[in-house]
Simulated scan of single mutants.
Amino acid sequence: MNAKTKDKIATGVFVAVAAFIVLLLAGLLGYILFRGVGHISFDFLTSAPETIRKGGGIGPQLFNSLFLLVLTMIITIPIGLGAGIYMSEYAPANRMTNAIRLIVEVLSSVPSIIVGLFGLLVIVNLFGFGFSLFSGALALTVFNLPLMVRITEQGLKGVPREQKEASLALGLSKWKTITSVMLPIALPVILTGTILSAGRVFGEAAALLFTAGMSSPRLDFADWNPFSPFSPLNPFRPAETLAVHIWKINSEGIAPDAEQIAAGASAVLVITVLLFNFFARWLGRYLYRKFTAIK
């Protein structure tokens, strides 16, 4: 067998594997959307589960998921970026730094149920935050920080050394070089890590069962006082997210149309994740062009 034949065989194998993965994902998404899109309506997206006998609804759960995403990203992104920048540009190369990297990698593989139990014991009980969106956001931060730190560090290390040295040679400070030269170049990589982190927020259920809770107070969307117990903007209230709601509906089996509600909620969850990914990538391209002056 000559080299050209081997190359064609290897290329065919890789193409077949890639096509299989694409078809598998397309089939999974198509199946979820096919089962659920027919159950989506304006009332379904805005009404509460209390109207379950009228067809149910996921309005509060959808809002809780989006609100939890915002809270988690507000905590995760600054800390993750700061830690990644420190590990890449400021941390000395010694055993302590290597140990920190090892700990970060181990944390990224901890099962979600363990993080949930940790959140229950420490965040909910010890710190006294109770079952709340804030507790859930802190627990999910434990999930997302390792990924954000490693992605940021690898993105900054992937910046060509010549560009960094040229910036320093022109008299820019190290911090100015990081913020004006290195971060814009590493932005696509960092954005990918942010999207992956956000996807875990949308789909996580096990950790939120022990931190955010499995029920929500009846929300008053006319009350925007964040200190009111019935305000949707209160981060210290119990909150049932969309992923938890899907699990709860299927496990309890109380609703007569539980299967239809779960199918519709699953389709909404998938569509929300897809829309978030498209928006995040558009924002990343916009920021990249703005920071690097590339049209």
Rank of each mutant, 00 (worst) to 15 (best):
V142T: 09
L140M: 10
T141M: 15
F118C: 03
L133W: 08
E162A: 08
V115F: 07
I79G: 08
Q154G: 06
N125K: 14
G128P: 12
L121F: 14
L156F: 12
T76A: 15
V104S: 10
N125M: 11
T76F: 07
R150P: 00
R150C: 03
A139D: 03
N144I: 14
M73V: 01
L126M: 11
L147R: 13
R161V: 11
A99H: 00
A139R: 03
L147Q: 14
T152Q: 09
L138E: 06
V115Q: 04
M148H: 10
S109F: 07
P78V: 09
S108F: 01
T141H: 05
L121W: 10
P78D: 07
V104I: 15
L140W: 02
P92T: 10
L120A: 06
L138Y: 06
R161P: 00
F134M: 15
I151V: 15
N94D: 15
E153M: 11
S112G: 11
G128F: 11
L133K: 14
F118K: 03
T141F: 14
F129R: 12
I114L: 10
L147I: 15
V142D: 04
V159S: 11
G80Y: 10
G136S: 02
V124S: 06
M73I: 02
L102T: 12
L121Y: 13
V122G: 00
N144Y: 01
V115D: 04
P111D: 04
L126P: 00
G128E: 07
F131T: 01
L81Q: 10
G116A: 02
I114R: 00
E153A: 02
I79A: 14
G82T: 15
T76I: 09
I113S: 00
V104F: 07
P146W: 14
I113P: 00
S109E: 11
